[in-house]
Design a protein around this nucleic acid. Sequence first.
DNA 1: GTCAAATACATAGTGTGCTATGTATAGGCC
DNA 2: GGCCTATACATAGCACACTATGTATTTGAC
Lengths: 149, 149
Amino acid sequence: MTLTRETSIGYLSNWAARLFTRAIERRLAPAGIATAYLPVLFALADGTAMTQKALAQHAAVEQPTMAATLKRMERDGLVQRRPDPADRRSALVALTPLASGQLNRVQTVVEQNNARAMANLQPAEQQALLTHLLQVIAALEADEAAAQK
Amino acid sequence: MTLTRETSIGYLSNWAARLFTRAIERRLAPAGIATAYLPVLFALADGTAMTQKALAQHAAVEQPTMAATLKRMERDGLVQRRPDPADRRSALVALTPLASGQLNRVQTVVEQNNARAMANLQPAEQQALLTHLLQVIAALEADEAAAQK
DNA sequence: GTCAAATACATAGTGTGCTATGTATAGGCC
DNA sequence: GGCCTATACATAGCACACTATGTATTTGAC
């Protein structure tokens, strides 16, 4: 039993993720929205302000990755930081009106993209795919946590 | 129906892919093998030599991406390029003995990693997951091809 | 045979992720 | 109060992906 790409869940996940990134970029880059911005946009969509640490946890990326993403979003006028009155080490990040104004369009594009990607699957199959992927993610996170120690 | 991470196939694919990359890095980086090397290693495993273009198509990455990967692999002593006698524009890439000697170990690590990731799924579910992901990939590639024109 | 178009690869610049490490503030112990 | 540790963030350096573009060779039309 040899290893081929088509039977490697790792390879297929990576491949699908790159295709998703390209598809989102194609449709949102003209609007100044990059894929890494999406978790931040959705996390702050309701108008709340969050710390960088909380945003990193929400997006499941490391802190320096989120720092770079926020720097680009700030450059692009999508977020603003103001000092956290309760802790001078941290800042509270919130969306700008420019970002809020694009939320509807962004959400529509993302949902349509997800729908297009799963258009060949029956509703039950779509649900199964999401469930199975979540179980894979849980297994990999458990493996990572075990290796940590 | 709001968009949450847990129901977004795009987000879950990206998340799983990052976890896979980290897991592979954790186990193969000490051996000098990076994740981007894997498609090249497996494509050349049988001793054949391929052009950069063929390797890029095999790995489903763009040509400059493969050029950079091959440069790192050459730096790490894993591949060597020799001029293609039939076409002076291109070079034929082949594994070095150093790379060939690590193939068994690499294949074992990748297979074990895939097995660990799907350990919580029944065999039928594992097969369904792979099939569904392939259908998602096919849909995204069709979408990309349509946008291309 | 010549020249224009196509092809193979290289390079530059950027986005997004990681690890390792530095700096400033907060919090708790004595 | 002073000090040690923990925490929040910044920075540096690298891997790996992309697009855009340049260079050299090949191919095909004439």
